[in-house]
Write a protein that binds this DNA or RNA. Structure first.
Lengths: 339, 339
DNA sequence: TTGAAAGCGCTAACAC
DNA sequence: GTGTTAGCGCTTTCAA
């Protein structure tokens, strides 16, 4: 059995209150007493029981992070940054995977498991505003990523429309006109896909280039095989293409793969841009021109915002915080017009 | 204030014991009583306080997973699999990042935070057997990955030596003789690097090919830039090379990148094999020949082994469990001799 | 089948 | 400065 405050108190010949004071670094303890207690702590190898402390204090010192899937690099890198920030702030992170499924996201919101944590950072894919409105009580929650709900909840988001517009404008500026878009979903007006597509169309409109629906390809998942399949589909349909905008980096990387298989040179024949600025975007061949959506800022801001709510030190209505983005120009879509 | 058992009991007109019985699905409750309690639970939106339950039961229903860094794809994919398996087994996972630093790994082993979880799955990089021997008490712990210590702890490992030998043998079979090895460390006899290098040398010896130390390159990290830098270093030194064995996939992918920058064709001029079988190994250009070390099995076995210890349903001495590996032959090092 | 009550280990009023 | 004590919300003997 692990030693308790009582054991330490008995050994040190003091009361448990005194031990508690020492353990918690309270100032008003006589040095000699403190020393005696510390000796007893060391001798017994005493470690506070955090569960008991949590029950008493109503805090757990842990937060939950729910993402679709850690095997997706975007979420893995995001999770790493959230955990790093949480560590700096002295809290630990419980990671859940939702698979991006609405049911599991919804279930999560009403799970008693949340009682194990002080708050939740949720990166939703399937959820809608109704689900969020129905969520119990005032459990501190921060929503992450692209979607913006009407629901009265803190959001930390990115500037999808503007960033996508910048990506497409970059392609247009280098002389591309037949730009395929990979990863659209049916009627996804509010999701990342819808917003980015919107930015894409805005760029086309600004440049006076007509939008051709035949260039928009839906994919089941936003992964490499989705991007590769989408390109194969386009080529099989004989669609004329001189650029590809993957709505995320893995789609774009899969696209590069399929283009090269088909004998198209990147960027000479087809330029490719992505969205996310994954670590591997710097090392792919060719390296990937992409949007850095400000992920580190998003991770840090999400943690800080959540902890502010937990501590109730950040009162006020729900906030929407949007990260700044950056276009990272690399080989797959250089800045110059094509030769 | 969240409703408690007492609130529910009062509303339903029963004792808290009865409510507890209902909530925990105990069989001996009269149906009418059960119904009354369930009505009260629903009306109040009662949710059990897990912290209190944990204090009482001494279990938390959570395990900790400590990996070096989630931005490394290998650990991200591993973490995803561990979380998925834990979910199947009804426990949640608290994820920590150690940065692979010995101090943080050591600190973790004696952290009171562990009290928040029932057990730990640790993927150590810096730790040695001394640190493990010094770890407090009988906290259930499973060690993951490549290293095997003398310490009396459960290990779930991979067959590093045999797998590396298979990788190098594959290169030798296709006629390569000047095989560079990327990612070695100084005197790392026990770590993954040391074991894999050992397998590599065994393959060379079996084929009667002399081992040339000039072909072994150390890297600071096992990441893409490490692999790219190592190759640039080799080429700058004018070392003659017809194949590269990256001791993990990211090293190999970085190597491919640097080789192509230098105008070397892969696999025609230089064949490349990796180790890990990351998701992206299937989609790189060229796709990467690599070792699948059995990661899914490792993740599942680690969780199952740990939970067995937690439940004490798996008594007996420490076990070492090694996954089966598979060589995945892809474009970067095809099976045929070079043309 | 249900109720009463003890206590998991800790914190924090409140006394002295 | 230090001790006493009452819970935090739950599970679980032990009785009834």
């Amino acid at each position: 059995m692990a030693p308790t405050l009582h054991d330490v108190a008995r050994l040190a010949g003091v009361s448990i209150k005194t031990v508690s004071n020492v353990v918690n670094g309270h100032p008003h303890v006589r040095p000699s007493t403190r020393a005696a207690v510390e000796r007893a702590v060391a001798e017994l190898g005493y470690t506070p029981n955090l569960t008991a402390r949590n029950l008493r204090s109503g805090r757990t010192g842990a937060i939950a992070l729910a993402v679709p899937d850690l095997s997706l690099s975007y979420f893995a890198e995001l999770a790493g940054m959230v955990i790093a920030r949480a560590e700096e702030r002295g809290v630990v992170v419980l990671v859940e995977q939702t698979g991006g499924e609405r049911d599991r996201e919804r279930e999560l919101l009403r799970s008693p498991r949340l009682g194990l944590t002080d708050g939740l950072i949720l990166s939703p894919l399937g959820l809608d505003a109704t689900d969020l409105a129905a969520r119990p009580g005032a459990y501190p929650t921060v929503l992450l990523g692209e979607r913006v709900f009407d629901a009265a909840i803190d959001h930390v988001t990115m500037r999808n429309i503007d960033a996508a517009q910048a990506a497409t404008s970059h392609l247009l500026a280098s002389g591309r006109r037949r730009i395929a878009v990979l990863g659209a979903h049916e009627d996804d007006g509010e999701g990342a896909a819808g917003l980015r597509l919107q930015g894409h169309r805005a760029a086309l409109a600004a440049a006076g280039v007509a939008f051709d629906p035949a260039l928009v390809v839906a994919t089941r998942f936003w992964d490499r095989s989705g991007g590769a399949d989408a390109v194969r589909d386009l080529l099989a349909r004989g669609v004329d293409v001189d650029a590809v905008f993957g709505l995320n980096d893995t789609l774009a990387l899969g696209a590069i793969r399929a283009l090269q298989e088909a004998g198209r040179r990147v960027p000479d024949d087809v330029a490719v841009v992505g969205f996310d600025d994954l670590d591997e975007a710097r090392y792919s061949i060719p390296s990937l021109t992409t949007i850095d959506p400000g992920r580190r800022w998003i991770a840090q801001t999400a943690v800080d915002t959540l902890l502010g709510r937990v501590a109730d030190s950040a009162p006020g209505g729900p906030r929407v915080l949007a990260a700044d983005f950056t276009l990272r120009v690399r080989e797959s879509a250089p800045g110059l017009p094509r030769r």
